[in-house]
Design a protein around this nucleic acid. Structure first.
Ligand code: FES
Ligand code: FES
Lengths: 148, 148
DNA sequence: TTATAAAAAGATACCATTGTCCTTTTATAA
DNA sequence: TTATAAAAGGACAATGGTATCTTTTTATAA
């Protein structure tokens, strides 16, 4: 399971992309509301992302977050690397100090396949690809009931 | 990823089973050493398991942990239920308040498959089946270098 | 040029999981 | 029957992830 930080990061980036398509540049307050995350914590998560240039930001009036050159083709793997590292993709499912093909734990064969499947998802899906699913109505960003 | 509590629980139960086959009844100290877990914490984990009758215990001299009627055919799913609940098998991978087929998040299709794969492992593998892999030399319980 | 709006940064608080320690209960062996 | 060995239980401490608050920096609009 991903950490809250990773979840918020991914959801925030998808929302930023959705807004960017409409030529908008959302700020922390709006983003936090839309992804159903606490405001101050969302700000911290976005700080990590901008510090690592996964997304750009502008300070001051009219500022907010956006993708440079409409470049949202970053993978979930990239995002997760910066939010929680890659332990989740490497850890032994049985709890051994390290996973090993040569000296496997009794869960290795099956667990390794699952873990690798998740890695494939993380490397295949991008902020763009997730956004696309939402735009085409095949998926949702949140569980807010919109009352507009 | 499983919690430490779940990992320790599964490893401890497997070790108990391995010992039981040799007509031994290990105690907390030995178990903790073998599964490379802190002693006092291992005791707590074993308390949870015995309270829920996933394994039996005997107090006093010559006491320790064992399976009644050599019954170690409990699934990892059963163990995990008692150690950390089933959130891990149900949670939305994108962080939405609940996972839903009808109203999916953009990760749902792929994530659901992975999560279900893990559930299948947890329901298929038992303490017995894991022990068997160790007995047959196909897997190891720990990364201790045995110096006997 | 000043007021305002927004992100960045730093400090701190909260909470669940993980981990430790000490006392009590229970069974066995001597 | 007493000493001993072991699990059970209760209270507490450490840690890391999550969350909050306040101040500082920066950019824009008026
Ligand atoms: S050794 Fe345990 S998952 Fe690879
Ligand atoms: S709705 Fe997100 S995983 Fe099912």
């Amino acid at each position: 399971m991903l950490s809250k930080t990773s979840e918020y990061a991914i959801r925030a980036l998808v929302f930023i992309q959705l807004q960017q398509i409409q030529n908008k540049r959302p700020g922390v307050i709006e983003i936090a509301k839309e992804i159903e995350a606490p405001e101050a914590f969302t700000a911290k998560v976005l700080q990590i992302l901008t510090r690592n240039h996964l997304v750009q930001s502008m300070k001051g009036r009219g500022g907010g977050f956006f993708f440079k050159d409409n470049k949202c083709e970053l993978t979930l793997f990239d995002v997760i690397q910066h939010t929680e590292g890659d332990l989740i993709f490497k850890k032994c499912g049985f709890g051994l100090t390290q996973c090993s093909d040569e000296n496997p734990c009794p869960l290795h064969d099956k667990y390794d396949a699952i873990r690798d499947g998740f890695l494939q998802i993380a490397k295949a899906e991008t902020i763009c690809s997730l956004s696309q699913k939402i735009i085409s109505g095949k998926a949702v960003l949140n569980r807010l009931v919109t009352m507009n």
